[in-house]
Amino acid sequence: MPKINGNEIRPGNVLDHNGGLWVAVKVDHVKPGKGGAFAQVEMRNLRNGSKLNERFRSADKVERVRLEQKDQQFLYESDGMLVFMDNETFEQIELPVEILGERRPFLQDGMTIQVEYYDAEALSATLPQKVQCKVVETEPVVKGQTAANSFKPAILDNGIKVMVPPFIAQDEDIIVDTGSMEYSERA
């Protein structure tokens, strides 16, 4: 694995630190009046989700890990496990539902997601940036209210509540940003 200096750590980097795999969430470069500069790094453990704040001086060496990313197609769910198929080898793998966290309702049949592997261990899964959903319940459209910069609550076909513009009606398809879990645009 390549070693990098403490001042080369960037958000999103995966580091092998203290026997665990950590992803850098936030990096602040600090140059105090006295002493040497350092990077204050907020990290999250990829295996158990715990957080850690660590200070790295520019002379400190840390191992940067490269994760292998594979596209997997969602097939079905059974007993709290999600079954995916590798698009190249057609092998099927099972991953726990918790790997998607709160974004699990946006997973749809046949959807292709990106799974990150370290050796043969699946560490994280990423949904597509935008997903199409149907509005199943919202307030009726009120004429003349489209000029105001206001939003109204809506419930989607997957049970998630989002705020939508006033011109969105019931049974309409919308695009939702899975990163922020907010309305993006009309479908």
Rank of each mutant, 00 (worst) to 15 (best):
M1R: 04
M1F: 07
I4D: 03
E8G: 06
N13C: 12
L15T: 04
G19Y: 00
G19W: 01
V25F: 02
D28Q: 15
H29W: 14
K31Y: 15
A37W: 08
E42T: 11
E42K: 15
M43L: 15
N45P: 03
G49D: 11
L52N: 08
N53Y: 10
N53F: 04
R64S: 08
V65A: 06
S78F: 03
D86M: 00
T89N: 13
E91S: 09
E91G: 07
Q92C: 09
L100V: 12
E102Y: 02
R104Y: 11
G110C: 01
M111C: 05
M111E: 12
T112P: 00
T112L: 11
V115R: 15
V115S: 03
E116V: 01
Y118E: 03
D119T: 09
D119P: 02
A125K: 04
L127W: 01
L127N: 03
V131A: 02
C133E: 14
K134N: 12
P140N: 08
K143N: 10
K143P: 07
A148R: 10
P153F: 00
P153Y: 09
A154S: 00
A154P: 01
D157V: 01
D157L: 00
N158Q: 07
I160F: 03
I160L: 11
K161N: 06
K161I: 06
V162Q: 08
M163W: 12
P165T: 04
A169E: 11
D173K: 10
V176T: 13
V176I: 15
V176E: 12
T178F: 00
M181N: 13
A187R: 01
